[in-house]
Design a protein around this nucleic acid. Structure first.
Length: 216
DNA sequence: CACCAGGCAAGTA
DNA sequence: TACTTGCATGGT
């Protein structure tokens, strides 16, 4: 079976088994964007605690958060780990939005996709996955998000060679195989995380109960 | 106790 | 270019 068909088949099986996932967890685009930075190499349950702190302090707002000195921001996001690093990274991102877009997230997201992605990647601390998560889940752009689960799933099912697994190559596999539909990209990535958390963890995979065909 | 979780950048050779 | 390391909390 060719790869585009395999990827479409996997989507159909995941959707049939798990149903729509309603991602990304977050009430506003700004909250989603902040969550994308805070969840870097971190369990989402810890990010929730950090977001709850910010919300409780009334800080979940571009101007308020940018005005907060990074050491105080770090204190609020402590539960999600790497707090000094992430405070600086968030501040870098907020600085871009404040400086070039007057703190207006809608204006920032109205930037053409290629330019918007490039500007995100120029922020120190925003790599390809964080940029694409913001583009897809906060801005609603047609970009496929590749993460550790995506990489692992394709590798375990023999759809990529381990060393071939460059971020943009994996992204291209999905974007070439699927129509450029943000709702579809959203759902597919969410389903990959869903099956990954339950059956395709780094250690202890439970392939026998996984709705996908067992790896060969 | 060890290992893992929706990365990224900086350092080394 | 290709590895390696630091960053850090909370759950299993």
């Amino acid at each position: 079976m060719n790869r585009p068909q395999a990827l479409n088949d996997i989507y159909d099986r995941l959707l049939a088994r798990f149903g729509p996932q309603h991602w990304w967890p977050g009430e506003t685009p700004f909250e989603v964007m902040v969550g994308a930075v805070l969840t870097q190499n971190t369990a989402w349950s810890n990010v929730e605690k950090a977001i709850a702190n910010l919300k409780g302090q009334g800080l979940l707002d571009p101007a308020r958060l940018f005005a907060l000195p990074p050491p105080l921001l770090a204190e609020q996001i402590r539960p999600c780990g790497y707090f000094n690093l992430k405070a600086a990274r968030l501040h870098n991102l907020l600085s871009l939005i404040a400086g070039r877009f007057d703190g207006d997230l809608d204006r920032f997201f109205a930037t053409p996709l290629a330019s918007l992605r490039q500007q995100l990647l120029e922020v120190k601390g925003i790599g390809p996955e964080t940029a694409d998560s913001i583009l897809l889940y906060a801005a609603g752009k047609p970009i496929f998000v590749v993460d550790a689960y995506t990489h692992r799933l394709l590798s375990r099912h023999g759809l990529i060679a381990e060393e071939e697994a460059d971020y943009h190559q994996i992204q291209a596999l999905f974007m070439d195989a699927l129509p450029a539909d943000p709702a579809l990209f959203n759902e597919y990535h969410a389903l990959i995380v869903r099956v990954g958390k339950e059956y395709c963890k780094k250690t202890g995979p439970r392939c026998g109960e996984c709705p996908l065909p067992a790896p060969s």
